[in-house]
Amino acid sequence: MFAWLRRHPSATAYLLLAPGILYLALFYVWPTVGMFLVSLETGTIQTGYTQSWNFGVYPQVLGEYWGDFLNSILYGGAATLATFAIGFPLAWFVAFRGGRYKTLLLFLIIAPFFTSFILRTISWKIILADNGFLLGTLKDLGLLPDETRILATPVAVIAGITYNFLPFMTLPLYVALEKIPPSVLEAAQDLYADPLSRLRRVTLPLAMPGVIAGSLLTFIPAVGDFVNAELLGNPRTTMIGNVIQARFLKVSDYPTGAALAFILMAAILTGVLVYARLAGTEELYGARAG
């Protein structure tokens, strides 16, 4: 065996890859193919589903649920921007001003995420309740009209997603910022760059790998999320994840659910490829020139 491997060195790599490939084939490729086949079936839960190669389901569900796709992209996109707006200063502070408290600060960013995703989202219901701590107090102070509410609006859904995915943006940003040598920033300062141009022309370009990684890590799961829309939204803020979940678990309409899942996958894949093309794959993979 070992002698054979010595004669065929390239086989060693494949052998080492085998467990991973087998795992992916079993738990990713096989179910994906299965799901694709399910999407082409027709029938009902009573009569059973039969394979009819119904490719027409794809344009049909896209026509019916384009609004939910739109919601997903809008809410996911807005949440990604919001996580960047919050996460960048946070990561910058930890990286450049954290000093010996860096580890503690990073731990504090992650700490809330040791609890369940669902419970964290439920907490937002308590915080944002119409007459709860936040809105109730503001209403009592006369700062908000009585009928104001945040829950059951798109704002609540976006806020929930933003909160739940914040570390996915902050941590890659931190890693990228932390790598920037202070000497580079000092050099910029020596060359009379004001703080804003230093940020715009030095820090931000050097942090791009983190920005790209963070936005992908946030946007991709955010688009498919259904928990925030379910708990914090209203019947008109449903995201495509809610529809997929309901089609599988409430209506038992598997072909529609599977077709929607495939369209979502294709849309995200296309989006990521375009993003990678625009942003450059080197940065996507975290490599840096020279």
């Binding site: 009902t44 839960i45 009573q46 009569t47 019916e64 939910d68 019947p235 008109r236 449903t238 809610n242 529809v243 309901a246 089609r247 409430k250 209506v251 309409d253 529609t256």
Partner: peptide, 18 residues
């Protein structure tokens, strides 16, 4: 009938946004 019921369930789900 069961098939009518299934169609109604699907239409209802769509109506309520699911």
């Amino acid at each position: 009938e069961p098939d009518v019921r299934a169609a109604w369930e699907a239409a209802f789900a769509e109506t309520i946004g699911l």
